[in-house]
Simulated assay, not measured.
Amino acid sequence: MKYKTKVTAIGAMVQELAEDGNLIILFNDDINDSDLKDISVSHEVGVLNEEIFVGDKLTIGDKIFDVTSVGNIATKTLKDLGHCTLKFDGDIKSNLPGEIHVRGLVPEIKVGDIISFE
């Protein structure tokens, strides 16, 4: 397991971003910015054991996704802040440095869901 955490809160704008942008923004739940909390899925502080690479698996709840692209700072921000933007478009090139692209449709996320990378 490269990374594992549990969802603790879902911001008011998460559903809109998922529907309009095919994305989910993650942040550790110790972030103190209310604007960021509004747009993010908050989760327990996790430990990143290894870098995330193309070909890895992302699991959210009971849904599994193939990682297709990893931005050049996504692993660092995931490690430092629990932050990355998950894009559900299967792109093989990240447009922004903090993005992780995966193949599949945006899942419904609930408080208590486990998010992990393997």
Rank of each mutant, 00 (worst) to 15 (best):
C84Q: 03
G112A: 11
I25S: 02
L17Q: 11
A9M: 04
V14L: 05
G104R: 11
R103Q: 14
E16W: 03
N22L: 10
K6W: 02
T8N: 06
D20S: 10
L17N: 15
T5A: 04
N28L: 00
L96E: 14
L58S: 13
D38P: 03
G90K: 07
E19H: 04
N32I: 01
I25E: 00
V102C: 03
V111I: 15
K2L: 05
D56H: 03
S34R: 12
D89W: 03
R103W: 03
G112I: 11
L36F: 03
A74M: 07
I73Y: 00
Y3K: 04
K93C: 00
N32W: 02
L58W: 08
N32M: 06
I39S: 00
M13V: 10
K57Y: 09
S42E: 12
N49F: 00
A12S: 13
L96H: 13
N49G: 15
K93M: 07
D91M: 13
V14Y: 06
G46N: 02
T75R: 10
I31G: 00
P97D: 12
G71Q: 07
L36T: 01
T5E: 09
L96N: 14
D80S: 13
K4P: 10
Y3G: 07
I64K: 15
N32T: 01
G90E: 03
K110P: 13
N28E: 09
I52R: 09
S42F: 11
H83L: 04
